[in-house]
Simulated scan of single mutants.
Amino acid sequence: MLAVDVGGTTIRAAAVRDDVVDCLHEVPTPAAEGPRAVLDRIGETVAAVRRAADPGAANRWTVGVGSAGVVDTRTGEVLSATESMPGWAGARLVAELTRRLDLPVRAVNDVHAHALGEARSGAARHARSSLLVAAGTGIGGGIVADGRLMAARHAAAGHIGHVPAEAARGLACPCGGVGHLEAIASGPAVLAAFRRAGGDGVSTTRELAEAARDGDPEARAAFDRSGRALGSALGGLANVLSPEVVVVGGGLANAGDLWWPSLRRAFDDELIPAVRGLTLRPAELGDDAALVGAAALWQTEDLQEVL
């Protein structure tokens, strides 16, 4: 299988055999040039991987795509997207790539692909059901049960960043709403919280982590608030969904003891007795998860439209 991970800054494509990523090609996403340029770049990158993986073109390939934005799993169209991908909403992703590549194509949201990858061969590989959250620039999620990805009727299942959060009361969310989890728990939100508290001298979340490790109390408090808010939300979702395992990935998961202890405590505090002891694990596959999951779109049963 050929797999593609389409983000606002980078397109990654590879051949995936037995959940192992091979012949990886990584190129910048020409997002500012519009959807046609992005689709052309995806097509060119996949073609390059295909040539590298099978120069004689002896194999009949299929293509799985995990893309930024809400992707209709039935039509392959991008239903909505953030400002990082101008004009991406409305892109006929599957139809256009099928035409460019002359190969069968399936597509889902990139975090959904990430969730499927971790369920197949990552942190949730031994579980029948899992909930994944990716905490980074945004807060996204995916639900997998019995090897099947839950896309739901509007292909939007897993938008964890847009559940209400008490700690985010009054804060604007990138989606246009107010008081959502993403407004307090995402990477940019951690930096914004630090600045609201009067902190300065840092311009990235990575620099903020360095300041926190050097003892800056406001920097440490910003990571603590993020962890507690996300942990509380995940505990509540675990009470509703009762998965076997909850997997946490994304850039904030690399913050280590600045973030994880607060996340775990808040998560445990929210669990009802029936699900206490539920496992909360860091993701294992990193950037390769979305590629493994995208390839698996051709190895699993049809996506479920409803939960």
Rank of each mutant, 00 (worst) to 15 (best):
M1H: 13
A3M: 07
I11F: 04
A13M: 01
V21W: 14
H25R: 12
E26K: 09
V27T: 14
P28V: 13
E33I: 02
G34M: 07
P35Y: 04
P35M: 05
V38Y: 01
D40M: 06
R50V: 05
R51S: 04
A53C: 14
A53Q: 03
G56M: 03
R60V: 14
T62C: 06
G64A: 14
V65N: 07
S67K: 09
V70A: 06
V70H: 02
D72A: 10
T73D: 13
T73A: 14
L79V: 15
L79M: 09
S80M: 05
S80T: 14
A81E: 05
A81M: 08
S84N: 15
G90E: 11
A91D: 03
A91P: 02
E96W: 08
P104T: 09
V105Q: 01
R106K: 13
N109Q: 10
A113L: 02
A113W: 00
R120S: 05
S121N: 12
G122R: 05
I139W: 10
I139F: 09
I139G: 02
V144E: 06
A145P: 03
R148F: 00
R148P: 00
L149W: 02
M150S: 12
A152I: 02
V163G: 00
A167T: 00
L171G: 00
L171W: 11
C173W: 09
C175S: 03
G176K: 03
L181S: 02
L181W: 00
E182S: 04
A183N: 08
A185P: 13
L191D: 03
R196L: 08
A197G: 12
G199P: 08
G201P: 03
S203H: 14
A209E: 14
E210I: 09
A211M: 10
A211N: 08
R213Q: 13
E218Y: 06
R220M: 13
A221I: 08
D224P: 00
D224H: 15
S226C: 12
G231R: 03
G231F: 03
N239G: 01
N239Q: 03
N239C: 05
L241S: 11
L241F: 11
L241R: 11
P243V: 12
V245E: 01
V245S: 06
V247S: 09
V248C: 07
A253N: 04
G256T: 13
G256L: 11
W260D: 14
R264M: 02
E270L: 15
I272A: 12
R281D: 11
L285V: 10
A290K: 10
L291N: 12
V292N: 09
W298K: 00
E301L: 15
D302T: 05
V306R: 07
L307A: 10
